[in-house]
Structures are given as structure tokens and as C-alpha cells.
Amino acid sequence: MELVFDGIVTAWQLLISLDQELLAVTILSLKVSGLATFISVLIGILGGTCTVLAEFPGKRLLISLVNTSMGLPPVVVGLFVTIMLWRNGPLNMLDILYTPTAMVIAQTIIATPIVTGITIASLQSLPSNMKLQILALGASRIQMVWILIKEARLALLAGIMAGFGGVISEVGASIMVGGNIKGYTRVLTTATVMETSMGNFDKAIAFGLVLLLVCFIINYFLTRVQQKERLR
């Protein structure tokens, strides 16, 4: 228990003094995971909407695949992305292994199925004849899609939160494709792992607490937007 207390004290001291390392690590975490979430929201909402509205053979299989991928283990994603990006791997011309860009790619692969899956579930939970109704009232196809997305927005925001929460808290992929390089690819989760193995438990707890704080602040704002919408 003493350690946890030490950790809280250390976290507070680092925060108060605006510790350069902590600041840099936190900002990189936000950049990488924010960007990955943004890309996965674009792909996920578009892909999810298309999947729901289109009828094609293998649709159920595709949805099951997406749902399974919602639980993709980050280490497995990390391993495959690493092998692809190796100097002598198939995507070597990108030359981005052990860079923040590689981390964005890995995290996007992790978050996209989560956003897609929740998009599919939320659109499918709308009344089934709503689509016909909207079209019957004279809306164009694009307007119809827009109205459906608007109707499902509460659940979609939940999807964004789940995607962001999934990637900012993962460590397996980030440490593999990023390498936890000081001042370059070190993020809150990989820093926590490293400080733990260095025996600096107070610092490890401090990084962990900052991670929780960051997650809370972001989810608080997203939730506020979501709940405000609900009241209208």
C-alpha cells in the first residue's frame, strides 16, 4: 500500500512540476491513439454503414468476422505489423518500423473492428422499416444514410470511446512496433512497463495514474456530448 501512496505522490510531483518526460510521453500517447481512433472512425463508420445497408452474399460471415476482430489481441497485431515492416519484410519500402507512424498503423488495425462492430450493431438496432419510411418521405439515398447515422449517434459515440479506450491502453503492439524508444516512441503504457522492470514502482504507478486521468478526461467530454444529445 505504501508503494501506491508513493506512486500517487510521485505522480502529483511530476504533474505539478510539468515534468518534460511525462509531458512528452503523454502527448505522444494522445497523438498516436487519437490519430488511430480518428482513422478507425472514418473507416469503421463508413464500412459499418455500407455493410448494414448493402445486401450481399457472405454478409453474416463478414459481420461475424468483424465481431471476432473486436477482440484482436494487440500483441498478435504487433507481431504481424512488425514482420510486415521489417527491413527485409514485404512492406520494407515504407521504412517506418520503430516509428510513431508504425504505432498508428497497428493501433488503427486494433480499433477499426471495434468501431465497425459497434456501428453495425447500432444501425441494425434501429427500427427495420425506418429506412423505407425515410425514402418514402422523399429523401435521397445520401440523406437517408445521414439520418440513420444521426439516429444512431449515441451508440456511435460509445463506439468511438470503446475504440479510443482500446488503443490508448494497449501495450503489446506499441512496444513491438514502436520499440519504446526514449523521446521518440515511448508512450504511457510502454513507459509503465519499463519503469516496472527497472524497479521504479512509484514512477510506474505515476505513469499508470496519468494514463487513467487522460482516459477519464477524454471520456468525460465524449460522454457529456453524448448525454446532452440524449436529453433533446
Binding site: 497523438k31 498516436v32 487519437g34 490519430l35 480518428f38 516509428t99 510513431p100 507512424t101 498508428v104 521518440y184
Partner: peptide
């Protein structure tokens, strides 16, 4: 979204 896109360019590269 706009600020995130701007971040894309600001990821450190060597």
C-alpha cells in the same frame, strides 16, 4: 478531426 490531421504531420520522423 482537423487538429488530428494536423498532428499527422507533427509525428516525429528521422
Amino acid at each position: 478531426a482537423l487538429s488530428l490531421v494536423m498532428m499527422l504531420g507533427s509525428l516525429p520522423a528521422v
